[in-house]
Every structure is written in structure tokens, then in C-alpha cells.
Design a binder for these strands. Sequence first.
DNA 1: AATGAATGAGACTTCATTCAT
DNA 2: GATGAATGAAGTCTCATTCAT
Lengths: 231, 231, 231, 231
Amino acid sequence: MSDPKTGVPLQEEGDDQECPRWRRRAEARPGEILDAAMEMFVEKGFAGTRMEEIAQRAGVTKGTVYLYYESKEALFRAVVQDNILPSLEEGERTVAEWTGSSADLLAELMRRKWQMIGRSRLSCVPKLMTSEAANFPELARFYMEEVVHRGRRVLESVLRRGIEGGEFRPELDVRTAVRVIQSPLLNAVTHMQSLQRFDDEELDFDAFVDVAIDIILRGIAANGDKDGSDA
Amino acid sequence: MSDPKTGVPLQEEGDDQECPRWRRRAEARPGEILDAAMEMFVEKGFAGTRMEEIAQRAGVTKGTVYLYYESKEALFRAVVQDNILPSLEEGERTVAEWTGSSADLLAELMRRKWQMIGRSRLSCVPKLMTSEAANFPELARFYMEEVVHRGRRVLESVLRRGIEGGEFRPELDVRTAVRVIQSPLLNAVTHMQSLQRFDDEELDFDAFVDVAIDIILRGIAANGDKDGSDA
Amino acid sequence: MSDPKTGVPLQEEGDDQECPRWRRRAEARPGEILDAAMEMFVEKGFAGTRMEEIAQRAGVTKGTVYLYYESKEALFRAVVQDNILPSLEEGERTVAEWTGSSADLLAELMRRKWQMIGRSRLSCVPKLMTSEAANFPELARFYMEEVVHRGRRVLESVLRRGIEGGEFRPELDVRTAVRVIQSPLLNAVTHMQSLQRFDDEELDFDAFVDVAIDIILRGIAANGDKDGSDA
Amino acid sequence: MSDPKTGVPLQEEGDDQECPRWRRRAEARPGEILDAAMEMFVEKGFAGTRMEEIAQRAGVTKGTVYLYYESKEALFRAVVQDNILPSLEEGERTVAEWTGSSADLLAELMRRKWQMIGRSRLSCVPKLMTSEAANFPELARFYMEEVVHRGRRVLESVLRRGIEGGEFRPELDVRTAVRVIQSPLLNAVTHMQSLQRFDDEELDFDAFVDVAIDIILRGIAANGDKDGSDA
DNA sequence: AATGAATGAGACTTCATTCAT
DNA sequence: GATGAATGAAGTCTCATTCAT
């Protein structure tokens, strides 16, 4: 969780003990504002969003937003950071604990990521960072290092493990392959947050993930083995 | 080409007849302005870009921009449309005329698209439309129909042809597979236009396209045939 | 004393009769708030001071200030009036009762005024009125009449008495001379409240008063007598 | 002259050569705005003045002010600096070149200062700096050093010269006396800029200066000589 | 065709004031 | 009596757009 006031990451302070009734509502505020801001930023972009719209959508007035976030920029940073942080270690743990085949691990990672992204607020981040990178260079660097690079490392380790186990083709250029493998999900999420509503050809996202897994696993499988994770 | 003044698609008007010497230079203006606008819009987004920055980058003053484009919105529409239109029929012609294998056709299409996109101004469009869709709904619909859907139709026809010819797996869900297949390139282009500069892990785009083609062709190949287009 | 609520001058109302124990502390509040307000107004000016700063400095919260003063303006008026009123008749009494020489009386008045001003809260008033006159015309008129003009009358009477007694030069333009005579102290007080802290050349205010008295008394002394009050 | 944009002192640039007709007006703008700002700042203080009022008084609109001054603060700094700078060396030159008596020199300096201050825009500075010192500490320091201290040095040198020449009393505490001597004029100027309009007792400023000179010169004169500069 | 001074609507932000607790 | 969350009017500043030259 980041400090609502500045948007800077923050370690826990244990000051939640005594809490008058009427603060309950107050403490929910930053969350409501954050959600409203996220939706607006995704829809209209940072510069295209008015603070008043965010306030309205959160059910408060302009001034109230400033009680919790000291500027529009701080609010944007908070949207990105608060939505990223909870999901950071997720994938790394799964890989470390996995005992099955590498193909199954890869499939599992993609499905899980899909679930997490698709149904949580994390899904806004790739679209936001793509759109606003140049306007928030600090944040962009943070995102690249703590999210993108870390995500790549995880996938690379899975690929190497699969190659060593003879599951995946040994001649694969691991670093490049990882980027290819990430593409379908990344694309789907971004599309969902922007052009989706103008696309009259609907997409069954669960089916999409299955097809992506299928094609990728066949695409990287070693010779004799062309079974994807779901026959 | 769209009418510089309104940014609305336009069929040729034969009004170039009388053309004093000094208009030559003048007619180069819209192009310079368009390029400058494209760069700024990609970098900072529509709302985040100031007309004066565009003018400066184009080497003119603010007022001059308004001689050619009647508003900031018209300029944005012109950037998108003028960069889209030239490439529209491209793929369709290639498919219609192709006589080789479907796998080779698919690989050729991807490489060609890459060349076109990677080296032309078209590459800005996916990023722009992703970021600004909600702010330009008309344009978004136009883009979805005339570019995205048409592009899908082309790839679908290639897949069907490959399936009929026994090259690709018959059980493929064609419409979904198309979206998976498009992802790597789409992703690469978008990344290039936004987060790339914050990514210290460089990427050899030509290699990336080859790996993507390789994985995809293997991923969709029918049983006995797992050769990608370049062994 | 002015009514804390409105800042309007007020004759005593006998409403202090019933007074529970816990009001004791509460009745100290206006004083603390008034002092805090005075300091802030002197430092930052009326418009430049925030109610919250005043509250903080007084050790209460914003809401509490409004329990005692109905608006920021009322608080400002109270600062000025409450600091002026106690000192109003002071000088007049001294003159009426004086039996010594006029030169000594003048010196005594200046020293006493200095003591009163220099060490009391009255010293903020000239600076405040100089800075905010145009924003508080009512108050400015009140100040001019009840303080400035009354002060001039007092000094004029001293001068006239000295002239009649042959101590001071008879050709003196009394009304103008009074203003000259007032200048050094007025200036010192104002300087103390504003630029003093940026002045690295310190000033011994007691010595300053002595020098001022010395120069002035010599400056206005009649022929044979050029002794200041302190030889 | 300070750079209109930032308010920072500036050395001359000789770029006035070719000047289209319509720039004439434009180049007068900063001056008009500066005058308007000066009047408003003196009247209402820095925080109490609205940019729109300044614009209106200068006969332009809000936006225009920002073409010439990048912020309200920069405008304030420009008001102070542009009004101070022209008068800086003035007094020092007079003293250096003087050949008459020290008493006459002192009287001349005071009269000249009065003329300069009383009739020029410089007169606003003492009031502004007194009121806003705490809000513009940089400027306050600049003012103290370049104006106040320099002014004191000049007067001190005159006093010392008079003492050495036997005109003024040798036991004078020069540094303190200087402050006493400066008071009347300083006070008059400040009063004129603030409380004057609420003071129904008018003051003949020229007479005031004469009386001040008279009292001061007698006040500091050595024994036998009690002639002011004007018998 | 080109300029750049000027405009003014509109955005971000602040802060005096209110009020439920 | 005291609090501090909430409000919304008002102020600073920006920038798309216009227009005289």
C-alpha cells in the first residue's frame, strides 16, 4: 500500500487500533477514490481526466480528493503502485514450489495470471503504463524493473527448466521466446481496457487463453512431444 | 489522404491546377506538421500534447498549424487516417495473389507487416488508438472496422486455406487463433512506441519476428509437419 | 475587550455569573488564539495566513477557532482592537498629571511608549494597520482616530506647553513637528516586526530610544537650552 | 531592468534594432502591467491581490499577464526590483562629488531622496517590503543589503565627515543616529502608501521634509552652530 | 502564407467555513 | 467544548484558438 498523500510506497504502520465509528467511512475513502481514478485514467488518459470527474464517480467533491492525494500526479502514481504491489511475488512463488512438468507449469502460470489480471484491478496497469510512460518516467522505470523484468525472469526460468528436462526444444532463444509467449495475454488485457468496447466481434477470453496455451506449448515443444497441457 | 482541414477521409479533388512556384514549399507543410504531431501524440498522448510543441517540432508557429488543420482533434484524426489508409489493401492483395504454401504465406505476411509497420509511420497507430479510443469513438470504430477487422479477415482466410490444404491443424478455432497469432507483432509495435525506451533489455526485432513465426507455425502445424518457414 | 465572536468593540456585559469549573480553561482559549493569530498576521499578512496555521500555533484545531471568532476577519479585528484598547488612555493621563519640565515629559513619554510597545503585544498594530489598511477600511479609520490622532493630540499638547514655558522654540510648526518626533519610534517598531530578521546589523533598541530623544530634544530646544533629558 | 519573464536582474541585450509597427504596443506592455501590479500590491498586499485585477487595471486580460511574467511571484519580484535598481547609485554619487558643508549635504540628500521617492515609483518599495518580507525572504535580503545597508553607509559617511569637520557633535553614535535620521522620510513614504487615505489631517510633505531637516540638523549640530540648512 | 500577441474558457489546487460526531 | 472530514467558491495558471499585421 502506498501513502495516499504522496503515492510513495510505504511500510505498514500499526495505527489501526482505535477507530471511532465515523472514521470507518473515512478510511474507505481512499479506496473509492482510487477505483474511480483508475477507471477514468484508463478511459480518458491522465491529461484527459478531470479531477472533478474522479470525485463525482467516487461520490465526493473535488476538495475531498485532495484530503487524500496531494495532486493529480500523486493520485495516478497511487493507482499504478497500489494495483501492482499486491501481485508482485505471486508468480515467483508458484515456480519455486512447482513439482509437475514444465509445460503444465507454463500453462498454469498463464491461466493464473489471466485470472488475477482479468478479474482484479491489476488489469489496468499495462494500458496505463503504455499510454502514460513518457509522462511518468519514474513510474515507467519502476514498472519495467519490478514488474516487466521480474515477469520475464520467471518465464525464462520455466523455459530453461523445460529445456533441461527435454520438454522444450533446446535451440530456443529463451529471452526472445519469453516475449513471444507473453504477448497474447498482454495484448488481451490491453485490448480489454481500450478497444474492446468498439469491437463488435466478441471474444471468449477463457477460450482465448486456452488457444494461446495450446499454440505456444506446441510451438515450443521438443520433437516427440506436441501435446499441449490440455489434449 | 484526408482533407487537411477537417481530417475527414476524402476522395481526390482536382484542385491542384494553378500552382504558383511558392506553393511548392507550402504543400510540404502538412506532412511536416503531421509527422511532428504524430511524434508528440505518441509520446504524450492527445490531451498531454500542446499545439505549440507540435508547431515547434514542425519548425513553424502555432498559427500556421491552423492554416492546415482546423483544430487539434482534426489534426489527431489526420494523423491516424493518413497513416492508416496507404496500408489498407496491402495484405489483401498479397493473399489473393499467393501461390505457395500457406505456412510460407503466413510467414511472408508477418514479415511484410513487420517491415511496413516497423519502418513506416503506420507503427504509431496501434499505440494511439489504444490510448485514445475513448476520446475518439468515431475514429476507434473506423479503426476497428477498416483495420482490425479487415486484418483479421485476411489472416482467417490464410488459416482456412492452410487447414483445407492439410498444412494446419483442422481442429483450430480459427477466429481465436488469429488473435493469438496477431499478438506478438502488435505487442512489439506498441512496446516500441511507449515502454521501449525504459527497457534496458534491448530486443532484436528481426530476431523477434523470426522466433514468433517459428513458434506460431509449429504451434498450428498439422501432425507430420512441424517445419516453420525457415528451417 | 472586544466580543470574541464578532470582533466589535464591546462594553461589559455582566454575563459571567454562572461558570462551571471546566470553563476556566476554555476562557483562556481566546487569548491563546489571539496571540497565535497576531503572530501569523504580522508574519504573513491577513490574506497570506491560513486559519489552520493559526489553530495549530494555538494548539487547537480549525473548528475550535470558529467557536470563538465567527470569521477570519472578525479574528483580525479582534487582534487589532484587543491590543489597542488597553493602551489608549495611558499617555493622556501621564501628560495631565505631569509637573516637571516639558523636555523631561517628552522623554518620559517616549521611553514609556517604548516600554509599552516594545514589550507588549501592542507592537504588532502599526505593522498590521500599515499592511492591511486598504483591506480593513473600517478598522483603519478606527485606528487613525482613536490611536494616531489621539497620540498626536497628546504630543502636540506637550509641545505647546514646552513652547509656552520657553523650553522649546516658539517658531515650531507644532503639527508637523509632532509627526517628525513620532517617526523614530514608529519606524523602529515596524522594522522590528518585519525586516528586522533580515537585517544583520543589530540594533540596541534602548540606545536607539536614547539617541532619538537626544536628537529630538536638541532639535526643538529653545536657544540657550540644548540639554537633552540625559546629559 | 529585470527579465519580465522571471523577475531576475538582467544585463542589457541590444536587441531593440528592428521593430515592426505592431510590436511598439507590445513592448510597452510589461511597463503597464508592472504599474498596475505595483498599485494593487501596495493597496491589497501580495496575497490579497488577484491577477485578474492587475490585468484589468493594465487594460489586458489575465492570460496576457502570463505572456510577460511567469507567475504572480515573479511579477511581485519584478515590481520591487525594477523600481529599486534605477535609484541605487544615486546617493553615493552625490556624496562623492559634494564640496559644500556637511549640513548642506545632509539636507540636500534628504530633499533629493524625497523628490525621488515621493514622485517616482520607488516609493512603493518600503511599504511592500515591510508588508511582504516574510513571504519573500530572498527579496527581503536583497533589499536589506542593496538598499537599506547601502543607504545607511552613505548617511554614515556624511555624519563622519561632519564630525571630522567640526560641524556635528563628536560624541554622536553614528550608526544609531543614522537610523534616527532616516526615520522621518521612511515613515512619511510608508504612511503615504497606506494609512494616508484614512487620515483626514492632511500633511504638506515639502513642509514636513523641511521641519525634519531643521530638527535633525539642530539635533546633531556641534555646540556653537545650531543653524539648519535653511535659516 | 506566416506570425505571435491576445484571449478566455477551463483545469488544478487552496482554504474559509460548516457540521456530524 | 472540541474535532476533523467534507464542501465549494475562488484563485492561479494553461492552452486551444483567433486575428491584426
